[in-house]
Write a protein that binds this DNA or RNA. Structure first.
Lengths: 134, 134
DNA sequence: CATACATGCTATAGTAACTATAGTTACAAG
DNA sequence: CTTGTAACTATAGTTACTATAGCATGTATG
């Protein structure tokens, strides 16, 4: 079972990650350089599959490349504590919260503008008036 | 009053927009090429100041360059209706809502993970367990 | 047997929206 | 006379991919 190797196309299908991105992750060092077939095709194993899945989950959670790399380094090095991981995660959560706050502010202002708008087919537009006010 | 011209430094201070960005907006055609002093320095007037303020407000509201450009084109051409503007604004608001939703989902998952975490100083971390699960 | 298709490869460029840098000029103050 | 400030241009760097060009190879089909 361990020696089951598969190509990049299969890895792509297994994970939902497009081929170019897999190669990109290899290039920037998130994924290791895999074995190659005699023809030069990449051959992956379960370990790399799991590593990629990990990367994709952290991606889905909004961690950027640097943060994903740090996670991987902590795990690879084995020199992490649960506290450290938790700390990173909490910090990231704060970032997300801040982004939500910013977007909500935008949303409020946008709604305020459209509410005032008469939606007519003339050029007298209160939205533009708001945007152009000194 | 109309002939009051000022340099890019003053425009920057008046608007809070850094100098490079002003030149960038000119390069991509959001701002017109201004007059130049004999020394070749850009000289701005009130019109451009107001135009830049407009751009910066739409930026603050999360409109991207393409959208900002469209707003400006509508205004420049005079061929807009209040409806059109309102429509664009509503569409953009939907986009913002979607982003908020995505971020909230991330936040929920992150909180769920950190809640389960024991915050210990060992390597037994439920956050990592979640991220690594098949 | 010839050809088309699928899949893989590399290297490079493009995307968005700035931001930063290098190298230059000009003027004013001490 | 040097230092500081504020302009200028052109170009590169940032983030995280995504797309393209051009090529090799194995398989299926006519």
């Amino acid at each position: 079972m361990k020696n089951n190797l598969f190509t990049i196309g299969r890895l792509s299908k297994q994970t939902g990650c497009v081929v170019q991105t897999i190669r990109y992750y290899e290039r920037i060092g998130l994924l290791p350089e895999p074995d190659r077939s005699p023809r030069g095709h990449r051959l992956y194993n379960e370990d790399i599959l799991n590593r990629l899945k990990f990367i994709l989950r952290t991606r889905q959670l909004g961690f950027n490349i640097k943060e994903r790399r740090q996670f991987l380094e902590l795990v690879d090095g084995g020199n992490y504590t649960c506290q450290k991981i938790r700390q990173k995660t909490l910090l990231h959560t704060q970032e997300i919260k801040r982004k939500i706050k910013d977007l909500k502010k935008m949303e409020r202002e946008l709604l305020r503008m459209t509410d005032k708008c008469n939606d007519g087919n003339g050029t007298d537009c209160s939205i533009l008036a708001t945007l152009f006010q000194n």
